[in-house]
Amino acid sequence: MPDPAPAALAFLQTRRSRPAKTLGLPVPDRAALRPLLEIALRCPDHSKLEPWRLVVLERAALLRLAALVEGCGARLDKIEAEIAKQRAQFAEAHLAVAVIASPRPSDKVPAVEQADSAACVAYGLLMAALAAGWGANWLTGWAAHDAGFAQQALGIADHERIVGFVHIGAQTATPPERPRPDTDERTTWMDA
């Protein structure tokens, strides 16, 4: 028989990301962040390849990334509004964790499954931060998908990619609930 965890189920049923622009100080220090990182790394990982890594971005690092956005945006012919929005993601943040997909050579585990594992790390970190009472949000943005930015900003290797930036901080506002998917529309039941 199942052994339910009602508190965990209630949390999962009501969890809500907090917009990154509403996250403020304080942010978790290293001692408070470490257990959240450990929780995130308890993710599905076929063959124990650990095809991911984390880069913790503190304030000075985030400001450095914000400064890199201008040149990247110009190179990609982004309009000023797009550049400003991407710059703000880093310039207004106090703490973010970059989740990096770093696939390993494997005859058993395809690269797509390794990328899925890295996405689970990002989601696990988001959930752990929220469960710990912090505000958190998983963002990417166009700069995250640019190899030049990724290499310059985070030292990403050619075989790696940024899965996302999980922003973590004090909740300064609670966003309204948003419409959720219709389970019946998104689910197919097969009994044979």
Results as ranks from 00 to 15, higher is better:
V69P: 02
R87Q: 05
D45A: 06
Y123R: 09
A150K: 04
G148R: 06
W52K: 01
A67P: 02
H94N: 14
T188K: 07
D146W: 11
F149A: 03
H46W: 01
F165V: 08
A132P: 12
A101E: 00
P19D: 07
A40L: 00
D116V: 10
W134S: 04
V163E: 11
A128T: 03
F90S: 04
A143G: 03
P28L: 05
V166M: 08
G71H: 02
I162T: 10
G24E: 02
A7G: 08
A153V: 02
V121H: 03
K85Y: 09
E185V: 05
A84N: 11
T187Q: 05
A40I: 08
A40G: 02
R75V: 02
V69K: 10
A7V: 10
D182C: 04
I79S: 09
A129Q: 13
L139I: 15
L65M: 08
P110A: 09
V109D: 01
I83E: 05
A40D: 06
K78Q: 14
I79E: 15
A136R: 06
W189F: 14
L33E: 04
A88D: 15
R186K: 13
G73V: 00
R180V: 11
R18E: 05
S47V: 09
A143Y: 03
A66V: 00
A150M: 05
V56C: 09
L126P: 05
P110M: 07
P110F: 01
Q89K: 15
G141D: 08
G148K: 01
A144Y: 06
R161K: 14
A7C: 05
G148P: 07
V121I: 13
M127P: 01
P110H: 08
A32N: 07
N137I: 04
T172I: 10
D158E: 14
E50N: 08
Q171F: 01
T183W: 14
F149W: 04
V109P: 03
L12Q: 14
A129D: 12
A31K: 12
Q89T: 14
P2M: 08
P179S: 11
P176E: 11
K78M: 10
T172H: 15
A119K: 05
Q86C: 14
A31V: 11
Q114S: 11
L76P: 05
A129N: 12
